[in-house]
Amino acid sequence: MYYPFLRGKQHELFALRDLNEAGILTEGIIPIIEPVKYSTQLVNTLNGLLNSNRHVIVIMNPSVGTFVDDLIENEEQLEEVLEIMNHSHTIIGYHLESDKALDELPQIVERCGGGLENVAIFHNDLRNLITYDQLFGELEAQFNFIPDETPFRRRFANNNGIVLKDSFEKRTPNAEYLNHEDEWFSAEHLYHEEEGFIGFADYSIVGEEYTESGFGAKAVAIHILYPDNQNHLRIRHFVSDSNENRADQAGKFGEALEKFIEWYNENSSPTINTQGLNELLACHHNGNFPGLGMLKRFSIKHHMELIGNILVRV
């Protein structure tokens, strides 16, 4: 199983919505959403997934954003979210950050329905394993998302563990990707089961670092995942060349897109022919600049559909 970790930002939510509505979000994918704020897009996306009989993990104590404050300040929004959380296919996600979880998590579970054994715990500090053991006793959480660290791997191998890795090497500024056009991404989809884990997780092509909003960059980069001849995942970066200033974002996109088209014509295959890539191809055919937010959406959609295609084959 694959668990893509997405912040509840507009284009990440729309990427999920598009894949779900197109019927190409495979059963081997359970999305994780860490809401950064309340929005109608968040509610509509979650309801769309649930109405399609899909499972989804929603983190109820996000580490970033204003989601909790939004719900505290608006009773109607709180009730709307609680109704979603009480759905049988919604899984409560929780960052285990301190011993306040001893009081807070049972309260969240009670309001959202279910039991502790149905919770997805996100671990980040070994010292909090004492709190985890106090909470769960002889039980285990339904999912334990852990960093790629040996002590965590030993503790949760064969105990509902899932390694959550930031496989995307973020480089600043974007022009730096010109020096790293093709990079390793991951092989967790091949080895997680034999290592005792029930799935694998990552932050897609966005990365773990959270930023509130984007802005025009001097260089435009398109990030595309693909499998190599051993079925390992690699990522290819297609970067504009006229990167002296932030002017002419459409022109920069066109430069990066031409590089993608050249690569695609040489590497096209049924596995990588996804809706996200077809939308990029349509931009080239129509001479259209969709905007940087849409470019992000295309890449996320491609990533999730590609993983789904690969899991069917593994």
Rank of each mutant, 00 (worst) to 15 (best):
P4H: 10
G23N: 02
I24A: 01
L25T: 13
G28D: 11
E34I: 06
Q41A: 15
L46Q: 10
S52L: 01
I57E: 12
V58P: 01
M60G: 12
V68G: 05
V68T: 15
Q77N: 14
Q77G: 08
E97Y: 00
L102T: 01
V109P: 00
R111H: 05
G114S: 04
H123M: 00
D125T: 07
D125L: 05
T131C: 14
Q134C: 06
F143R: 12
D148V: 00
P151F: 04
R153M: 10
R154D: 14
N158F: 11
V163Y: 00
D166P: 02
T172N: 11
E176I: 13
E183N: 10
A187L: 12
H189R: 06
E193T: 09
A201I: 02
A201K: 05
D202G: 08
D202E: 06
G207L: 01
E208R: 08
T211P: 01
A217V: 11
A219N: 09
V220K: 00
I222L: 15
I224V: 14
D228Q: 07
N229T: 06
H232L: 05
I235M: 13
V239N: 12
S240Y: 00
S242K: 04
N243F: 04
R246D: 12
Q249H: 03
G251W: 13
A256G: 10
A256M: 05
W263M: 01
P270R: 03
T271Y: 15
T271G: 03
I272P: 07
H285G: 14
G287H: 15
N288Q: 12
N288A: 09
F289A: 00
G291H: 07
M294Q: 10
R297P: 08
I300D: 01
H302Y: 04
N309P: 02
I310W: 02
V312M: 06
V314G: 08
